[in-house]
Amino acid sequence: MQTRNKVLDDVAQLMQNALGVAHGAKSEAETALKGLVDRWLADRNLVTREEFDAVRAMAQKAREENAALQARLDALEAAAAAPKDADPA
């Protein structure tokens, strides 16, 4: 007595092969779509997140330096505008 049916084994093998092909097709479709989106974005001259973060860090540093220079300038102007203690006469 045979416990396994040959027809069912063949159908199961066929379904397994079909799933493998479907998985491969899905991977190829995802790769093709990713390439298409990457090309579309590159054509639009958009920046990457890394580039954006680098420019944002540079702008933050420039703002901090600008604030420090403004404080120094204000101190120098205040010192220049203060009356002199010593009278030259």
Rank of each mutant, 00 (worst) to 15 (best):
A62C: 03
T31A: 12
L36Y: 11
L69Q: 11
Q13K: 09
N66I: 03
A54G: 03
Q13R: 10
V37I: 15
K61G: 01
D53Q: 15
A79F: 03
A89V: 08
W40Y: 14
A12M: 07
L76C: 08
R4A: 10
G24Y: 03
M58I: 07
L46Q: 15
L41R: 12
L14D: 01
A22S: 11
A42N: 05
T48Q: 01
E64A: 13
E64M: 06
R44E: 05
Q70A: 12
M15W: 05
R44W: 14
D43F: 11
Q60M: 00
L41M: 12
A82N: 02
R56D: 09
R39E: 00
L46R: 03
A54V: 09
K26P: 03
A32T: 01
L69N: 12
D74Q: 13
A12H: 08
P83F: 02
K34S: 15
E30S: 00
L41P: 00
A71Y: 05
R72K: 09
S27A: 15
Q16S: 12
V7T: 08
V37M: 11
P88S: 02
D85H: 07
L36S: 09
Q2A: 08
V7F: 09
A67T: 04
E28Y: 02
L73G: 00
E50C: 02
L69R: 10
F52D: 07
V55M: 08
M1L: 13
L41A: 05
